[in-house]
Structure formats: C-alpha cells, structure tokens
Design a protein around this nucleic acid. Structure first.
Length: 795
DNA sequence: AGCACGCCGACT
DNA sequence: GTCGGCGTGCTC
C-alpha cells in the first residue's frame, strides 16, 4: 500500500499535487521535499499524507530537503492567507518558503590568521612587514592584515602555506545574541507600568507581582480575548468562505441591506481554529499612546516578559521606521541589539538568521513586513509598531496587510499581538470598539509633559500678504519662540519650490508628458519635476509654448519656497529644509536629522518626513502651513490620513522643558478634521467617520471598485450590467452592490454602465475581478467590460 | 515560476 | 511566405 503525499509547491497553484512516497523515505507533514514537476525538479512542502489502496501512476517524491520543516501553525497561516486574500495556496506558500539561496551558499566562511610562532621558511621584505603587522598572537582578518602591512593578499596566503601564520575559521558573530530581559533600565512611569501589565497575557505571570491587582474596568477593553464579548459577535463565519468551485450555486448577496455584512472586516478565526489549547493570553491588543507617551518602553516590557518565559518575540515595523535609533533603544533596554530582518539583509546572514529563528535561538526579531513569515519555533508575542502605517500593505503578488496577518498568526500560534500606534487606523479602532481587540491607552506623555496646545489660524481672517504663505500670527509665534532660544518646525507636505508653474503671457501650465500631473518646480535643482513618475526637465528661461522670456511664474508653495520666505523674515537664523529628496541622499539626511535633534538649527521646514521617527528635543513650536492639503483628494481615507498626519506633526512640539504649541493655518477651521485636531478628540472623530460611511452605505473600511460595462447602445450596456449582477456568482469576499448610484453615463460616445463592487479585505480586487469576469457571462457584440478600481479606494 | 501552444505584425 | 510578440494553460 503505497504512501501518497500531497505536496504544495510554491508556485501560483491553488492545489497540492500528489506524489508517491518511495520505499524507505519517511515523511511528515511540513517536511520540505524535492519533487519532479513537468520537465524539472522543484521544492514543495508535504501538506498531507495518506495511503492509497491500489498502485498508482503518480510520480515519486525525489527526496527530503535538509531544512527545518514548516511548523503546523505556519502551514495553517499559509492556508488562511490563501483563502483570505483569494490568492493561490502555492503563492501564499512562497511567502514563507525561501530556500537557502545559492549565492549565500557560495559565500565563503571568514578566515582569520595569527602568528603561529613557527618562523617562515623563507623571509622576504613583504613577509616581514606582514609578520610585524600581525605582531602579537592576536587574530586578524586576512584582507585587513594584508592592507595594514601594505602588501597583497598573496603574501599572507603564502605565509599560511608556509606555516608561519595559522588560519583559524572565524566563529561568525552571533546573528541573534540573547537579549537580557533584566538589563538595568530607567524606571517606567505609573501609567506605563499599568499599561505594560495590561499587555501581559492574562493567564501568565504578572509583570510585577506586587502591582498585580484587579485591573481598572475601563482599561480592560471590551470583551477580553474577544470571544466572550457581550458586544455583537461577528455572525459571518470566519475564516472566509472557500474559494469558488465550479458549478456551485451561491445566493447573490443582498444588495439593499449591508448593515451587519461587514463583520469579517478583519481576520478572525473561529475558536477551534485559534490554536486551541495554547491559546491562553492570545488575542490582539491595541496599545494607543500619544506621541511621547513611551509606548515603545511599554511593549518592551511585554517583550521582556516573553523572553523570560523562553519564547520568541517578533516586532514588526514599517521599513522606514527600522532605524539604528530604534535598534539602539532596544539595546538600551536589553543590552544587545536585536536581530533585524529587512529587505536589505541578504546572503549568509539572512540564512543564518532564518536558521536561528527556526531553531528558536533568535529570541527577538525586529523586522519589516516580511519578517511575519519567518519560521518561528515558539512564538510568544508579536508587536506591530505604527499599526496604522500604510507600508504594511503588500500590493503585489499576494496582496495582504501585514498587521492583519500578524493578528492571524498570533491566533494560530496562540500568542498575543500588540498593535501599537499614536494614531490607530480606523479599522483597528472599530475592532477595538467592537470588542474584538482589547484597548489599552497611554493617555499621558512620559515625564508629565503636556500635549501641545493646538490653535487654528483662520487664513480668511489672518491670512498672509499676497504671494506670502506665513500668516502674521505664525510669524509672531516664531519670533517669540526664537527669542526663547527654541526650535520651530514648519510643516508643509509638499516637496520642491512650487507645485505649479505657468506662463503669464500665454497661460501655459507645465504638466508631465507621461502623467496628468503638474510639474513641480525644484529651484535648488533648477528643474521641473514630476512627482508621479520622476520625469524631469530643466526649468526653461523662455516659455516653451509662446517663447516669451522670463515670464514664468510659480504658483503655490513647496517647502523650498517656505524656506525662502523664512530666510527673508529671519535672515540671521539657521533654516533647513528636510524632505525625502534631500540633496546628498539618505545618509546625509540622517546626519542632518541628528544635527537638528542636537539643536544645530533654528527653523526646520519639512515635509511628512519630519512627522515620524526622529525626536527633536528642542522643538516647542510647530506651524502647519496648510492643514487643508489632502482634505479634498479623491481618496476616501483622506480625512483619516490627514488627521493622523496632522496629529503626528503637531505632536512633535513640546518635548522640551516647556509645553509646546502648534499653530495650524487653515481656510476651513470648522472642517471635522481640523475641529478634531483642535479638540484632540480622536475617538469622536473616528466615530463620526464611521457613521458618515455608514450613512453613505459604505463599510467602515474596505475597498470599492466598479465593473464598467460599455456599449454603443444604452440598452445593451444596461442589460449586460444587470446580467452580471444577477447571473454571476460574485467572488467570495467580494460583494456586488448592484448598479452604482449613477450607473449610466455617456463617455466618448459609449454608454457606460457601472456596477459597484466592494470588499472589506486587503486583497487584489482588480486582479480577482478580472479573474471572475473571465467566468462571468461573456459580453457579446459591441460590449466591453472593464474593471475600474480606484487605486486609492482603500476606505 | 518555466515552458508550451497559439494567434496577429514586420521582415530575411 | 516566415520570425516573433507575449496572452492563456499546464505541470501530480
């Protein structure tokens, strides 16, 4: 009775393939194997094993690959991600399975040399220099020694062959030195202690036994782990519905009532699937703390707790936040830098770290998105820092949101997940609200520092002079601030000098030839640049359209223009412009940021780059030059994003001795975003956002797309649109809402019938709808069907 | 992912 | 008349 193995191959295949297990090969689920596939050999993972009664004509498994097998939770994560993101299972497997790459294998081990004591058989001047440089009995890197002696590597090699130098294989420095959870640290504030205690798994040992009293009810969040909640429990079965099967009938989604249909907004697992038995303390916690409240220190305590228990911890961060500054903070708490995983680490180091993670030796890994798929052996905690960051969204290949997948992995591994942010995303707030996540707040700033006072400057009343962008109240505030010897930050989320250039003679506006956007003037570079595609041309002297000389005029401000104005107002002050296109590259930018933090500058003019990451201890005034930017964009998340950005930027003020303040220039002081910023009432703002979306018939978050049927005849377009809505089974996880509000439009001589489609998931909606359309009723004759996804339509 | 098959434009 | 573009399909 031959054994049959179901092998999942990391290709875009949705099913595992069957192979016979040859005599003598013992396989277990999760084993990595090599199998024949068509004309070649590939790797795959044993996804299932069974006995086949008869003989079979299946091809045999070639053999096992000597790497750590995929753990059960990890295999289930693959299944889950595939089902949730509507991606082929094999593609999901590819996220996890990275074979030791050949380039890494070819890297040679480092060799060091030292003087053996045996005199060289032959002496030359070059050899003497090397021996002199090697001096003592200390170890030297081969090439370093050659360099120091001023000779070529050949001489050193010659001495090794000779026996005068002995070669010693260098023990590679540990990829993940053990962090010390009890490393001396600065004591936490009371609020931090309390929050840290709340992060600990409820069933586990409290952080500090003496402080482990009953928890204040308000801090407890609703619903503990989520499942015992009295809040409405999602009625929709989760995990998500299975992928479509041919011929299977499915009722069309109720198109009128979408209330209650969005309960599987974020990954959830049924209890049975949630790592039953290991699940003590599992569940997600939103750790919300205002800028400067010391969130990091709080979750470091949870990490320490996890390490003490001998389990592994993963800290996920957006790639840009993964800085040396953060690693140093970690080192200050744990005595060593953590193992860092990001796209930049490669070769041997990557492989060794992966192996250390699989072996359970790497206790703490700090990593970007992809670290989520490392083969942890006994994961005890996941922290997702800056939970709201859009960088967690993977938008090619398998589309997923790393934050959500982290929650899923936590459930599968039976470990808690901490989502940390000063400005949590709307979906996480909704989840906390509904009792799915616990909610822990850090309302105070560390060291008793106060939040900055935020005041609006109504530009309709107190606006600047013509052609200027700084209002008198803001100028006065800067003056006062400078007089007090403190730093000011002027924030404008626009790079360059001016976002639009036009010719005063003919009115020609300079736009990108590839995109439909305006070309942004960069005065420093003397160029007009497209911020969409990077196209650039030298700034012309004469209008390229009408030839008029010296009559081009910049419209609107960018940071360079603001800096110019500031320099005119305060000629003897040090002003710096900080934006992502900083001349000299990322390295110089980092140095400048440090210089600013050290106080070597009076006024910073910056884009959103200054909103996060770096701390500026001397900064007490933030001026927002145009709070209205972004409010009117087509992005349905515009309000939320703008609010988060403004909250982060204004939060930069006041880390010095006196509380900071922020002045916000706006033409719409009563706009909900501005009002919320001024009142600081984020909760209410988000509640209102959700209500507004509900009122508009939209889910609190998700993605919208439109199926566009177009035809020369109005009737044909409409009929086919209706047919699509009715006859075709919508893709799982996607809902056809029916005709959009204005379903018919005449565009360039063709009638367009629009069907609104939505999903609450972070998936490749466009790709999936195309796939779905291929199976839907075929359009006939003059009809065309297209999928139109607003690229920014993540609600 | 590879590699095949397959149907429409510019060329020895 | 072919060479070749890369659009779907298949690999147990």
């Amino acid at each position: 009775m031959p054994d049959v193995a179901e092998i999942l191959i990391p290709l875009a295949l949705d099913t595992a393939y069957s192979y016979v297990v040859p005599e003598g090969l013992r396989l277990a689920e999760g084993d990595v194997v090599q199998v024949p596939l068509g004309p070649r050999e590939t790797v795959g993972v044993v996804w299932g094993l069974s006995h086949s009664p008869g003989g079979s004509n299946l091809r045999p498994v070639t053999g096992r690959v000597d790497v750590a097998p995929l753990s059960e939770p990890l295999r289930r994560l693959v299944d889950w991600i595939a089902r949730y993101t509507l991606a082929p299972k094999g593609s999901a497997l590819a996220l996890v399975l990275r074979l030791p790459d050949e380039a890494a294998a070819r890297e040679t081990a480092r060799v060091a040399v030292r003087v053996s004591g045996k005199p060289p058989a032959r002496r030359t001047a070059a050899r003497d220099k090397v021996l002199a440089a090697a001096g003592d009995g200390a170890l030297h890197g081969k090439s370093a020694l050659a360099k120091r002696a001023g000779v070529s590597l050949g001489v050193v090699d010659g001495l090794i062959d000779d026996g005068a130098l002995e070669a010693v294989a260098v023990e590679p420095e540990p990829v993940a030195p053990p962090p010390d959870p009890d490393h001396p640290r600065v004591p936490l504030s009371e609020a931090q202690e309390a929050a840290a205690a709340l992060l600990m798994p409820t069933a586990a040992i409290p952080l500090d036994p003496s402080s482990a009293g009953p928890l204040p009810l308000a801090e407890r969040g609703r619903g503990g782990g989520g499942s015992e909640s009295s809040a409405p429990v999602p009625s929709e079965p989760s995990p998500p519905p299975a992928p479509p099967r041919k011929g299977e009938e499915r009722p069309i989604a109720d198109r009128r009532d979408h209330s209650g249909q969005f309960s599987s907004l974020t990954p959830t697992l049924s209890r049975t699937e949630a790592g039953a038995g290991r699940g003590a303390g599992a569940g997600a916690v939103l750790l919300e703390g205002v800028t400067g409240s010391g969130k990091t220190e709080v979750y470091f305590e949870a990490v320490a707790h996890c390490v003490r228990a001998g389990r592994q911890a993963l800290i996920l961060m957006p790639e840009i936040a993964l800085t040396a500054q953060f690693l140093d903070r970690f080192a200050a708490r744990f005595g060593v830098r953590p193992a860092a995983w990001h796209s930049g680490i490669g070769g041997k180091r990557r492989e060794r770290l992966r192996a250390a993670v699989a072996a359970g030796e790497a206790l703490v890994v700090v990593g970007a998105r992809s670290a989520l798929f490392l083969p942890f052996r006994n994961l005890g905690l996941i922290v997702v820092d800056e939970e709201h960051e859009a960088a967690y969204k993977q938008e090619d290949g398998v589309h997923y949101h790393a934050r959500d997948m982290a929650v899923v992995r936590g459930r599968l591994e039976g470990c808690p997940v901490v989502l940390a942010s000063a400005t949590p995303s709307i979906e996480t707030r909704v989840n906390a609200e509904r009792g799915r996540y616990r909610h822990v707040r850090l309302p105070e700033r560390f060291g008793g520092r106060r939040l900055p006072d935020i005041t609006a400057i109504d530009m309709r009343l107190d606006g600047p002079e013509r052609g200027r962008f700084l209002s008198p109240p803001l100028i006065n505030a800067i003056k006062a601030n400078l007089a007090a010897g403190e730093q000011a930050l002027l924030f404008l989320n626009r790079r360059g000098y001016a976002p639009l250039t036009l010719c005063r003679a003919c009115g020609h506006r300079y736009r990108c030839r590839n995109c439909s956007t305006w070309l942004v003037e960069h005065r420093f570079r003397k160029a007009l640049v497209c911020h969409q595609c990077g196209y650039a041309e030298p700034r012309p002297q004469a209008c390229t359209e009408c030839g008029t000389f010296d009559n081009l005029t910049p419209c609107g401000p960018g940071v360079e223009r603001i800096a110019e104005e500031v320099s005119e107002l305060f000629p003897d002050r040090r002003v710096i412009v900080l934006s992502s296109d900083f001349p000299g590259g990322a390295e110089r930018l980092r140095m400048e940021l440090e210089a600013v933090a050290a106080g070597e500058c009076d006024i910073v003019v910056g884009t959103q780059l200054v909103a996060k990451g770096h701390n500026f201890p001397h900064l007490t005034l933030v001026g927002v030059l145009d709070a209205d930017i972004g409010l009117t964009s087509g992005d349905p998340r515009a309000a939320e994003r703008t609010f988060q950005l403004l909250q982060q930027v204004t939060g930069r003020a006041g880390r010095g001795e006196r509380p900071g303040r922020a002045l916000v220039q706006t033409y719409q002081p009563t706009h909900p975003v501005i009002a919320a910023l001024l009142s600081g009432d984020a909760e209410r703002f988000y509640a209102e956002e959700v209500m507004a979306r509900e009122a508009a018939g939209l889910p609190p978050f998700g993605r919208l797309a439109a199926l566009v049927v177009s035809a020369a005849e109005r009737e044909a377009a409409e009929a086919h649109g209706q047919a699509l809505a009715r006859a075709a089974e919508p893709p799982p996880g996607v809902m056809v809402l029916g005709p959009a509000e204005a379903p018919l439009a005449l565009v360039r001589g063709r009638y367009r019938f629009r069907l609104l489609v939505k999903t609450e998931r972070n998936i490749d909606l466009q790709g999936y709808l195309r796939h779905w359309l291929a199976r839907a009723p075929k359009p006939r004759g003059n009809l065309r069907v297209a999928v139109d996804v607003d690229p920014q339509s993540f609600l």
